[in-house]
Simulated assay, not measured.
Amino acid sequence: MLDTYKMRDHDMPKEMRVLLETYPREAWDAHPGFKEKTRHWLAAHSAFRQIAEQVRLDTEAVINKDIALDSYAGRLSYFGGNLVGSLHGHHGWEDHSYFPELSAADPRFDAGLELLEQDHADLDQVLDDITRKANRVIKLSTLDETQAMEEVGAVLPAAEAIEAFLERHLADEEELAVPIILHHRLRG
């Protein structure tokens, strides 16, 4: 079902990963240029991964009748709304503030930043899709439980797509941005 959405299916170009060889992920935490702002940015990414997983797990649970529909609708409203709103805000900030800062520091990586910006546009479509589907389930949960349960099946592939999309995109984003930050001692 992931083929329903436009998602980048190729790796970040090798030339965009050159600084990652010098600044591998496992060494970031010990680097003197790894400052609090970067930790907060990575923590936001971790939270997005966790919330996306929770939305998928809750959707699977209601399908398997492990949680009640009304409980699911509340959780979907809370976690789904949090995920969608937070991702839109976060990606908007990255596109308009963070990525230009990285580009100014090291324009060699502009092609990678452009790929990440396109990912944001593609993810917006997935977020809009799950929003429509989730809102339908939430509304129907108080009107027609049978129809709402039928609609839950449409939420699952969107939840799976968001989780898969974030896994790839956030890892690429982190592995491009953090080495630039460390190399140029940005965000201190």
Score class of each variant (00 low, 15 high):
13 P>W: 01
125 Q>F: 07
139 K>C: 06
28 W>Y: 09
40 H>P: 00
137 V>N: 06
97 S>N: 15
121 A>P: 00
145 E>Y: 01
91 H>Y: 13
64 N>A: 15
59 T>E: 04
62 V>M: 06
64 N>G: 11
140 L>V: 08
116 L>S: 03
120 H>Q: 05
145 E>D: 06
14 K>D: 11
112 G>F: 00
142 T>M: 04
45 H>N: 13
129 D>E: 15
118 Q>K: 11
47 A>C: 10
59 T>G: 03
100 P>M: 02
30 A>N: 08
72 Y>P: 04
153 G>T: 08
120 H>M: 05
72 Y>C: 05
149 M>F: 09
63 I>E: 11
18 V>H: 00
114 E>S: 15
21 E>I: 00
134 A>C: 10
36 E>K: 13
36 E>A: 12
12 M>I: 12
29 D>S: 09
68 A>H: 13
95 D>Q: 04
116 L>A: 08
59 T>A: 02
27 A>E: 13
22 T>C: 00
101 E>K: 15
52 A>H: 07
86 S>L: 07
48 F>Q: 04
50 Q>N: 12
30 A>I: 02
136 R>A: 13
130 I>Y: 03
73 A>D: 05
65 K>D: 15
123 L>Q: 07
147 Q>E: 15
63 I>C: 04
115 L>Q: 15
72 Y>T: 03
140 L>Q: 10
47 A>S: 13
35 K>R: 13
23 Y>N: 03
30 A>R: 11
35 K>A: 12
128 D>G: 15
128 D>R: 13
25 R>Q: 08
131 T>L: 12
22 T>H: 01
17 R>V: 00
114 E>F: 11
113 L>S: 08
152 V>L: 10
120 H>N: 05
79 F>P: 00
131 T>M: 10
144 D>P: 02
13 P>T: 00
23 Y>P: 03
65 K>F: 07
111 A>Y: 06
9 D>F: 01
114 E>Y: 11
38 T>G: 01
85 G>H: 11
135 N>V: 07
129 D>P: 02
147 Q>Y: 03
127 L>E: 10
153 G>D: 08
74 G>S: 12
146 T>L: 08
119 D>G: 03
150 E>W: 09
46 S>W: 11
20 L>G: 06
